[in-house]
C-alpha cells in the first residue's frame, strides 16, 4: 500500500533535467490551474501534461497513482455536485480537474527526480542539512517500512487475526496489534541508525561539501524558456473569456 511512494530509478530527458527546472514546472502548473474555473481550460492544461509524462516514461506510474486517488477524486466531485445542489455540474468537473492537475504537476517532479536531487535543492535553499537528511531518509525507508508492515500483518494473521471481519470500529481496533509493533520497531531502529551515523562521524564538519554539484546546462535553459513561454501563453489563454464552460 505504500508502494506508490517508492522512488524507482529511471532515465529519460526529463529525469536528466535540473531538479530546479522541474520544481518551477510544478509550481507553474499549480498556479495555472487556479487562475480559471473553466472545465475546458483545465482539461487543456491536463492534456498538455501528458506528453511530458510520456517523454519521462512515467505515464503508467502516473496512471497507477491516479487509480489509487480515485476515491478522493470521486469524493471531490460528489461533494461539489451535492453542495452546489446539482446546479453547476461543470463547476464540479472543474474542481475535480483542478485536483488532478495539481497532483499531476507534482507527480512529474516526484516521479522523475531522485530524492538525493531534491535534497540538493533543499540544501541550495539553505534548509539545514539535518532537515534535508530527514526528508531523504523518510523516502529511503518507505520500501523498508512497507516490507516490515507486511511481515507484521502476516505474523498477526498467523495468530488468527482477521482484518477483514467486523464493523468499522472493530476493524480500527484490529489494527492496534499491527501498529504497535511497527511503531516500537521503527523507534528502536531510529536510535540504532542515529548511533551508527554518529559512530561514522555524522555532524563532525560544519560545512559539508557535495559529490555532485548542480549545474544549469543548455538543455535546462531551453526547458526553462519553454516552461516560461508556455506558462505565460496558457495564463493569458486562461484569462480570456473564450471558454464555453
Amino acid at each position: 500500500m505504500l508502494r506508490g511512494f517508492e522512488y524507482l530509478r529511471g532515465d529519460s530527458p526529463i529525469h536528466r533535467l535540473d531538479p530546479r527546472v522541474k520544481i518551477l514546472y510544478s509550481l507553474a502548473y499549480s498556479v495555472l490551474c487556479f487562475i480559471s474555473l473553466k472545465a475546458t481550460f483545465l482539461a487543456l492544461l491536463l492534456v498538455v501534461n501528458i506528453p511530458i509524462l510520456v517523454i519521462g516514461k512515467v505515464l503508467k506510474r502516473w496512471l497507477n497513482m491516479m487509480k489509487a486517488a480515485i476515491p478522493f477524486i470521486a469524493l471531490i466531485f460528489l461533494f461539489n455536485v451535492l453542495f452546489q445542489r446539482f446546479s453547476n455540474i461543470w463547476g464540479a468537473v472543474a474542481y475535480t480537474l483542478r485536483f488532478i492537475i495539481f497532483m499531476t504537476a507534482f507527480a512529474v517532479l516526484f516521479l522523475t527526480t531522485t530524492p538525493e536531487d531534491l535534497a540538493l535543492v533543499m540544501v541550495k535553499l539553505k534548509i539545514p542539512y539535518e532537515y534535508t537528511l530527514a526528508f531523504t531518509m523518510a523516502i529511503r525507508f518507505v520500501p523498508t517500512l512497507s516490507r516490515e508492515l507486511q511481515i507484521i500483518i502476516d505474523a498477526q494473521r498467523s495468530r488468527g487475526l482477521e482484518l477483514e471481519k467486523g464493523n468499522i470500529l472493530e476493524r480500527i481496533r484490529k489494527y492496534m496489534p499491527i501498529l504497535i509493533p511497527l511503531i516500537v520497531h521503527e523507534i528502536r531502529r531510529s536510535y540504532t541508525l542515529a548511533e551508527a551515523m554518529e559512530s561514522r562521524g555524522f555532524g563532525y564538519t560544519k560545512n559539508r561539501t557535495y559529490y555532485y554539484e548542480m549545474k544549469f546546462t543548455k538543455k535546462d535553459v531551453v526547458a526553462l524558456l519553454c516552461i516560461m513561454v508556455s506558462a505565460v501563453f496558457l495564463g493569458i489563454l486562461g484569462k480570456t473569456l473564450l471558454w464555453p464552460f
Partner: peptide, 17 residues
C-alpha cells in the same frame, strides 16, 4: 492457523500487548 502454528523469526514483529 488452528492447524498450523507459525512462529516468525523476529519476535519484535509480533509483540504488541
Amino acid at each position: 492457523a488452528k492447524y498450523v502454528g507459525l512462529v516468525f523469526q523476529n519476535p519484535d514483529h509480533q509483540i504488541f500487548a
